[in-house]
Simulated assay, not measured.
Amino acid sequence: MMVAMAQEPSLLALVQPHHARWQACLEAHGLPTGAATLIRMAADGLWQAELLGLAASTPELRNRVISRLLELAGGHA
């Protein structure tokens, strides 16, 4: 995905609205901008690490990370 976007920067325009909506949704549920950004970026990093095979993870660890992100979000995800 990163290579594709590096070669064709216009592809970024396809994913930017998704991230903006996600950020706005978290903030609309009362999360401060910093907390919303942290949660969104952590979830995005988890997805990218799994997609690219960068992190050795177990389903249990993944579930614990997701549970913790939901706790930080106050159940607003």
Score class of each variant (00 low, 15 high):
Ala43Lys: 10
Leu12Glu: 04
Ala43Glu: 06
Met41Trp: 10
Ala24Cys: 05
Gly30Asn: 01
Gln16Trp: 08
Leu14Arg: 01
Ala24Pro: 04
Gln16Gly: 01
Val15Met: 11
Leu12Cys: 03
Ala6Asn: 12
Ala35Ser: 09
Pro32Cys: 14
Pro9Ala: 06
Met41Lys: 12
Pro59Asp: 11
Leu69Arg: 02
Ser10Arg: 09
Gln7Arg: 11
Ala20Thr: 12
Met5Val: 07
Ala43Trp: 06
Ala55Glu: 07
Asn63Val: 04
Val65Pro: 10
Glu8Asp: 14
Pro32Lys: 14
Thr33Arg: 13
Gln23Ala: 10
Val15Cys: 12
Ser57Thr: 06
Met5Ile: 10
Pro17Asp: 14
Ala55Thr: 08
Gln23Ser: 03
Met2Leu: 15
Leu26Lys: 00
Gly53His: 12
Ala55Asp: 09
Leu69Ser: 01
Trp22Arg: 05
Leu38Ile: 02
Leu11Met: 13
Val65His: 11
Ala6His: 13
Leu14Asp: 03
Ser10Gly: 10
Ala35Ile: 01
Leu11Ile: 09
Trp22Pro: 05
Pro59Ile: 04
Ala42Lys: 06
Glu27Gly: 04
Ala28His: 00
Arg68Thr: 08
Arg40Lys: 14
Arg68Ser: 11
Gly30Tyr: 01
Ala77Pro: 05
Leu61Gln: 14
Ala43Val: 02
Met5Cys: 11
Ala20Gln: 15
Ala49Met: 09
Ala42Gly: 09
Gln23Asp: 02
Glu27Gln: 15
Pro32His: 11
Ala24His: 04
Leu70Tyr: 06
Leu69Ala: 08
His29Asp: 03
Ala28Asn: 07
Ala43Ser: 10
Ser67Ala: 15
Ala13Met: 02
Gly34Gln: 09
Leu12Ile: 06
Ala42Gln: 12
Gln48Pro: 02
Ser10Pro: 05
His29Glu: 04
Ala36Thr: 01
Ser57Asp: 14
